[in-house]
């Protein structure tokens, strides 16, 4: 027992003399790890594509033989035909296409502003609808229209009714137009609140119109 005690005390005293494992520092050099982390980070940042593709929904009419009397008649005063041709050129006219009395055509381009901007033209032609939409939006923002479902429904119906009086656009791309032009003009329809539009084939007389416009 004494021996054990002695040994104990001996070991206690000999603390400094005994060879002990060197106390390693708790600090690790983390530089390589940081290097690696940032390397991975850079890789993932560069390979990630954050912009997801967007889509534009279109609905085409059911392709059946529609009888002539079932076709909905559109008033000529509301109808706007947009002919898309080569080199991003647009030819448009109001009214219906009639081989005997060719309509007066106008030339436009895809610029957002400018004398021949199709955007400006559409804004102008669809002014009734746009003004109403703007008015409704403004009064909602100003708090004039109470935020009640039935009130909003009523105003939505008013906008719908106005859209019926608004433009009807017939989009007619010719063979030399690019797909980009078609998407651009469909885009304009969205921007300028044209509710009723359709992609239609060119008629023979309209092909003449394009040739004559050059």
């Amino acid at each position: 027992m004494a021996e054990v005690q002695q040994q104990d005390s001996g070991s206690g005293k000999g603390k400094h003399s005994k060879v002990r494992a060197k106390k390693a520092s708790t600090h690790i050099d983390m530089t390589p790890m940081v290097d690696l982390a940032f390397l991975l980070l850079t890789f993932f940042i560069l390979t990630t594509t954050l912009s997801k593709p967007r889509t534009m929904d279109i609905t085409m009419p059911v392709k059946d033989d529609i009888k002539e009397e079932d076709r909905s008649k559109v008033p000529a005063s509301q109808t706007l035909s947009i002919l898309l041709t080569e080199n991003d050129k647009i030819i448009w006219y109001m009214g219906v296409d009639n081989p005997e009395t060719p309509p007066e055509t106008n030339v436009a381009d895809f610029s957002a502003s400018g004398p021949n901007s199709v955007h400006k033209m559409l804004l102008e032609k669809n002014k009734i609808v746009l003004d109403l939409v703007k008015m409704v939006e403004d009064s909602v923002r100003a708090g004039l229209i109470p935020n009640k479902p039935e009130e909003i429904k009523q105003h939505k119906a008013a906008v719908k009714a106005a859209e019926k009086k608004g433009l009807i656009v017939l989009i007619k791309p010719d063979e030399k137009a690019k797909y980009r032009n078609l998407v651009d003009i469909l885009d304009e329809m969205l921007v300028t609140n044209v509710a009723r539009y359709a992609i239609v084939d060119l008629s023979e007389s309209e092909k003449e119109l394009i040739l004559n416009a050059k």
Binding site: T55, I58, V183, D187
Partner: peptide, 21 residues
Amino acid sequence: QNNKANRFALITNLESSETAE
């Protein structure tokens, strides 16, 4: 259309706000 698929989407890129007006 012949396959009775009348609704479809066109894939586009999101435009930078150049035409935003």
